[in-house]
């Protein structure tokens, strides 16, 4: 099921994850969130940007613990926990946030 953003159409897999990581742009993330009935605010963007930076370096999404620690450092210790991340991304930070960030879905026993 392809997704449309900024007048262009992008390929995704069965679950809505972007087929080609290089296609990603911020409009696409907004469009994906909208399809889920969510609006992205600056806190969401902090997470999404961190995910993209981490992926750039390591070719994988960060562990939940790495993510919470990084967010804690950026947004303050009261936000450096998975409860906060689940408030931002109710379907799970690893999966939902990865999708908006254009990253492939984490696989395995997770």
């Amino acid at each position: 099921m392809p997704i449309e953003a900024g007048g262009k159409t992008y390929e995704t897999d069965e679950e809505g994850y972007l087929a080609d990581l290089n296609d990603w742009n911020p409009d696409l993330a907004t469009a994906m969130a909208k399809a889920d009935g969510a609006d992205l605010d600056e806190n969401h963007w902090e997470v999404i940007n961190f995910l993209r930076e981490y992926y750039e370096e390591y070719q994988i999404a960060p562990a939940v613990r790495v993510l919470t620690k990084a967010i804690g450092k950026k947004l303050g210790p009261e936000k450096g926990n998975s409860k906060y991340l689940y408030e931002l991304f109710p379907y799970g930070p690893a999966k939902q946030a990865c999708k908006y960030a254009g990253l492939p879905k984490p696989t395995g026993c997770v």
């Binding site: 070719q59 994988i60 960060p62 562990a63 790495v66 984490p106 395995g108």
Partner: peptide, 13 residues
């Protein structure tokens, strides 16, 4: 591994 976690990422974690 199942995750597709490469060596550098594992090391960092």
């Amino acid at each position: 591994n199942n995750l597709g976690l490469p060596q550098p990422a594992l090391e960092d974690t």
